[in-house]
């Protein structure tokens, strides 16, 4: 065997061993990788993904006029005590009373951040403090919000609040701060623990069940089934924001 043939066959042999070794390694590691993936999916540390899109159904026929259990629960959950200054105090969820201008029909419903798929607040925020999680929850990063309030100018639902003064009695799971903007978090701290938002729980405890929380992407889930059977009205549908909060009969 000439030197060149030898080196050629050596090169082939090396390539074979490299490729075979790589294949064996892949076969050995793959189940581990898969197991690791399953382990992460089952843990609390699961990164937020677009596998879910959290949303709310508001059954206005079940929402009781004068009841504000959802509002109280939200205030309690997030420590929104207020300073008795209605124009500057924060409200993350409010009850709106409506009267049809033609028929006179009256409605009462809760209004909060609609967690839009195309949120105008996120588009206009100069620093990226307003952001949308992969699972559709729209939040404010309190660390990089500069308090310019442009998001409040852009929100079509008047759903945001600016913190106008020093706060006390804050909850550790819901940090807030003077000089930044905030809004409904869809109780993200509860959602990440597999629980429902405080407003939904309070409405259910009161026996009204006007609020249903769920995953819009879960075809077998309660929310998707409700939306299959009912027309889920999107507020300001003209803006094509694809909101995650849907109402009946508005």
């Amino acid at each position: 065997m000439s030197e060149s043939e030898y080196s050629k066959s050596g090169s082939l042999r090396r390539r074979f061993f490299t490729q075979a070794g790589g294949g064996v390694a892949l076969l050995a590691l793959a189940p581990g990788v898969r197991l690791a993936e399953l382990a992460i999916a089952a843990s609390d540390d699961e990164p937020v993904s677009d596998k879910h899109r959290w949303g709310l159904w508001v059954d206005t026929s079940r929402c009781v006029d004068g009841c504000d259990k959802c509002v109280s629960a939200c205030n309690e959950e997030h420590g929104l005590s207020g300073m008795d200054r209605p124009e500057t105090d924060a409200q993350w969820i409010r009850k709106v009373d409506l009267q049809d201008e033609v028929t006179g029909r009256e409605l009462s419903l809760p209004l909060m951040c609609q967690h839009c798929e195309e949120p105008p607040c996120v588009d206009v925020c100069p620093t990226g403090a307003s952001f949308r999680r992969e699972d559709g929850i729209v939040l404010v990063d309190k660390h990089i919000c500069i308090g310019c309030r442009y998001c409040m100018m852009a929100c079509p639902f008047h759903a945001r609040a600016f913190i106008h003064e020093e706060l006390s009695g804050q909850k550790t799971h819901s940090p807030r701060g003077k000089g930044v903007v905030e809004s409904c978090t869809l109780c993200v701290h509860r959602v990440d623990e597999g629980r429902t938002p405080a407003c939904v729980e309070a409405c259910s405890n009161a026996g009204n069940d006007a609020l249903v929380f769920g995953d819009l992407k879960d075809e077998e889930g309660r929310l998707a089934l409700i939306l299959d059977e009912n027309e889920g009205v999107e507020l300001r549908s003209d803006l094509e924001l694809n909101t995650a909060v849907r109402y009946s009969e508005v």
């Binding site: 996120v122 588009d123 206009v124 925020c125 100069p126 620093t127 990226g128 403090a129 990089i144 919000c145 500069i146 308090g147 310019c148 309030r149 442009y150 600016f162 913190i163 003077k178 000089g179 930044v180 903007v181």
Partner: peptide, 25 residues
């Protein structure tokens, strides 16, 4: 007038290029 004028450095270092406000900076 910002709620947090002390975070001016954030306005200069964090940019959301979809925001017309960021472009204005």
């Amino acid at each position: 007038d910002l709620g947090r004028p002390d975070r001016l450095i954030i306005a200069m270092t964090y940019y959301n290029f979809k925001s017309i406000f960021a472009w204005n900076i």
